[in-house]
Design a protein around this nucleic acid. Structure first.
Lengths: 258, 258
DNA sequence: GACCAATAGTTCGCCATACGAACAACGTCA
DNA sequence: TGACGTTGTTCGTATGGCGAACTATTGGTC
């Protein structure tokens, strides 16, 4: 058979190998060959070839039968971060604002129907630390960042995303109803900001505002604070600080063409 | 011919594709197909298949004839960072110490005969900002981090690294003589610390100390300050703070088995 | 510890797939 | 305008990857 659906321009072996590399995430930092095969849906032999190639290239490390990522994968991300001048243009803004605010600020965008964290400020004595880092992924539906990102999309796309999967419940305050969530997203679109309360982690209030200009790839910044802190952490102050942060990022032309 | 040197366990197409992904660095954030082919030493057609596969997988973005990395590559690094709990164990230590010190602190290791930056503290009002980020690479020979890393290696390995390439001169104070550099590395091994002056960037003094335990993969922390600052930035204080930082990282068991 | 079952890792013949020479499509300088 | 260097794309061929079959390892039961 001459051409059974495969594009001659795409290298399927390469794509399968990439899938092996991508399957390592926070939930499974170290896996056996069989596990990799299961998670990628590949034949064990195929997964093996991919993994051994990654080991030889230095991206994967083999301890007995377990495989895990090596620091070399950072180099791949480093290319992106330096190309977009994150160190010069993004991080200083996040850090400065976070220090005025006294809480972490996170920069995020949409990727693969999840929230992809791009950068994170780090102030010394933040009251709340999740341990999320750049490159981590968090859910769309029940986070302030995710809601804000969906609000940047055309309405029908956002609706499709919400209705796509059954909605999980992270806490007992997680909104489970499709229509209520869509309504919140619409409101976020009108307001240009989002506040969520205890929907992803109990007792934590999440805030988010838009960074990107309408039409560009959606990018947002957000922050979180435990419920019931003193005057200093009033929602208005946090949101104002986030707006300032977003404005500075826009001005620095830091997030163009992501 | 049955087996002309190729290992049946390694997928050469995958390895070539990875080379395409890895060729994007700070110096060339956006490249044409022909340029990728040249830099990877691959045939243009091969480079094209690799690049198109990366585009389809979402790691590369095509604007006209230029290709550049997408934020999705961060996800790969995210897996590593989360697996090693950088957000929880490393970043807070770096940030806290950096804030006492009033200067950035960088965590680094050896990769591919260069210094690979693993993590970087971020204090709001640092006097000196290079804009380096995690995943960036800097030279071995003329940086404090690099010298300290080489000092962690068996002597003959360090010597081999120094003698391998002709030594570039970044500034007019860069040491150009093989033997002098080897001597400095030996001294670093004895002292457990390194100080360099203006060898990589003029007017900047670099400091570095070891984090890893002897026998483990070498990991170091370092900092830099412009020459001629006030009392607060005396070398002793910086080195003491770095030693504290290294001790805390060891205690947090944060950098085991990299 | 001997047995078995289930699961994990590895080999090898066949054929789908990736290689690269050849071709086409731009630019661009004389 | 025509000749040339450069870049992107096609297609026949041989080579490298697929996966069924095999072997090794783990873990549970008597």
């Amino acid at each position: 058979m001459s051409n059974n659906g495969q594009d001659r321009n795409i290298s399927s072996s390469f794509a399968k190998g990439l899938a092996v590399l991508a399957v390592f995430d926070a939930a499974s930092p170290s896996m056996s060959l069989a596990e990799i095969a299961r998670r990628t849906g590949q034949d064990r032999a195929t997964a093996r070839r991919g993994a051994l190639t990654l080991v030889q290239a230095g991206y994967l490390r083999q301890d007995g039968r377990m495989l895990s990522l090596t620091p070399r994968v950072l180099e791949l991300a480093g290319g992106f971060l330096q190309a977009n001048q994150f160190g010069l243009r993004v991080q200083p803004v996040l850090d400065h604002r976070a220090s005025s605010l006294g809480a972490e600020i996170t920069l995020a965008m949409l990727d693969n129907e999840q929230v992809l964290l791009l950068a994170q400020s780090t102030v010394g004595h933040s009251p709340v630390t999740y341990g999320f880092t750049a490159g981590a992924r968090i859910p769309l539906i029940h986070t302030s960042l995710g809601r804000m990102l969906m609000a940047c999309l055309p309405s029908e796309l956002a609706v499709a995303l919400v209705k796509k999967d059954p909605i999980p419940g992270h806490t007992d305050l997680s909104i489970q109803d499709h229509d209520t969530i869509i309504e919140r997203i619409d409101q976020a679109r009108r307001d240009g900001l989002v506040v969520t309360d205890s929907e992803f982690e109990s007792g934590i209030i999440g805030y988010a505002v838009v960074v990107s200009r309408p039409g560009d790839t959606p990018v947002v910044v957000g922050s979180s604070a435990p419920r019931g802190l003193g005057d200093q952490h009033r929602p208005e102050k946090i949101l104002r600080e986030l707006q300032l942060c977003a404005a500075e990022l826009r001005q620095a032309k830091a997030v163009v063409g992501l």
